[in-house]
């Protein structure tokens, strides 16, 4: 068998899919929450990037990975609230506000990195921590499944738990119902006394926290440093995962897995004698194709039916 195929059908490949899915999944869940409340959050990319840097800096200065994690998640919340302030209070177009925040994040993180670490590329001069790997006691001994999900970064497990938590939150709690009501019909929600602004602010804060955890995974789990623009479009791929997953947490999970798969494939194919540029293109091309194919289905099912 070709060594690449052999590698792909190994448990370590399956494990690596889960690993690279983690940041996309966190961000996709963040996108689902914001979207259901009626706000298109395209600032996910920037939130992830800012949290990735904050996590590294705080963990380096406190010496604690968990402090870095909480600071990173809090940074995501803060960016979410800033987005909320401009969109909800100052009535900035939400897409343009997202673009502004992404721009700020992509350059601003380099600015801060330079101010803190005197380097514009990577943070390797900072003694930052990584989130721990966890071995699940019984599961790790199950054949096939064990090597895949038995030992992963704690953030990978948290992302899987987050799928369930966000699902329960959105569909089994009264606040989740209110959140969806606000997204479905803000006027109706307002008429029964739900504060649309308040709900959307909270949704954006949750969205930011989730994206922030995804960012922290990138710089404190996936690798152990921050590098400029290390998100490389994952925040936008998460938007596609949300669309493919029909704005539902479970759907977003499977969609994120698909994008994780292409990401992992492109990592494994670096060894092939194909120009690296083409291999690096795969995740983006797949996202484009999925976007087109999926949206096509949506169109047939009635939208824009008058054309």
């Amino acid at each position: 068998m070709h060594p690449l195929l052999k590698a792909i059908f190994s448990a370590s490949f399956a494990a690596s899919i889960l690993r690279v899915t983690t940041p996309i999944l966190f961000a996709a869940l963040g996108s689902v929450v914001a979207d259901l409340s009626g706000v298109v959050n395209i600032a996910l990319e920037g939130m992830m990037l800012i949290s990735a840097l904050v996590g590294v800096i705080v963990s380096a200065f406190t010496g604690s990975a968990w402090m870095g994690f909480f600071a990173g998640a809090a940074a995501g919340v803060l960016v979410g609230l800033v987005l909320g302030y401009f969109h909800l209070k100052l009535r900035t177009n939400v897409i343009l506000a997202g673009i502004a925040l992404n721009l700020l994040a992509s350059q601003g993180t380099v600015f801060v990195l330079y101010a803190v670490a005197h380097d514009k590329g990577v943070s390797s001069s900072l003694p930052s921590k990584v989130m721990p790997e966890v071995q699940l006691p019984i599961i790790k001994d199950i054949p096939v499944l064990g090597p895949i999900i038995g030992k992963q970064n704690i953030l990978t497990y948290m992302s899987l738990i987050a799928v369930v938590v966000i699902y329960l939150f959105l569909y089994k709690t009264s606040f989740g119902l209110r959140l969806r009501a606000v997204g479905e019909n803000p006027d109706a929600a307002d008429s029964v006394g739900i504060s649309v602004h308040k709900v959307r602010f909270i949704a954006l804060a949750i969205s930011g926290a989730l994206a922030g955890m995804g960012g922290v995974h990138l710089s404190m789990g996936y690798v152990s440093w921050f590098s400029r623009n290390m998100t490389s479009g994952r925040g936008f791929i998460a938007l596609a995962a949300k669309a493919l997953g029909r704005t539902h947490p479970i759907g977003a999970f499977f969609a994120s897995l698909l994008f994780g798969l292409t990401d992992a494939l492109s990592n494994y194919m670096q060894s092939l004698r194909v120009p690296g540029e083409f291999i690096q293109m795969i995740p983006y091309v797949v996202t484009l194709v999925v976007l087109a194919v999926y949206s096509g289905r949506q169109l047939k099912s009635g939208r824009f039916s008058n054309e």
Binding site: I42, I95, S232, G233, F236, I237, L239, A240, A243, P275, E277, F278, Q280, M281, Y284, V285, T287, L288, L291, A292, V293, Y294, S295, G296, Q298, L299, R303, F304
Partner: peptide, 26 residues
């Protein structure tokens, strides 16, 4: 993609930016 399939031009164009960058460098 937008006109025929109602796909978000925002996400599509951002993805294409990466594709063009890689294609150009190739």
């Amino acid at each position: 993609l937008k006109a025929r399939w109602n796909a978000s031009e925002l996400v599509a164009s951002l993805m294409l930016n990466y594709v063009f960058l890689k294609l150009g460098m190739y």
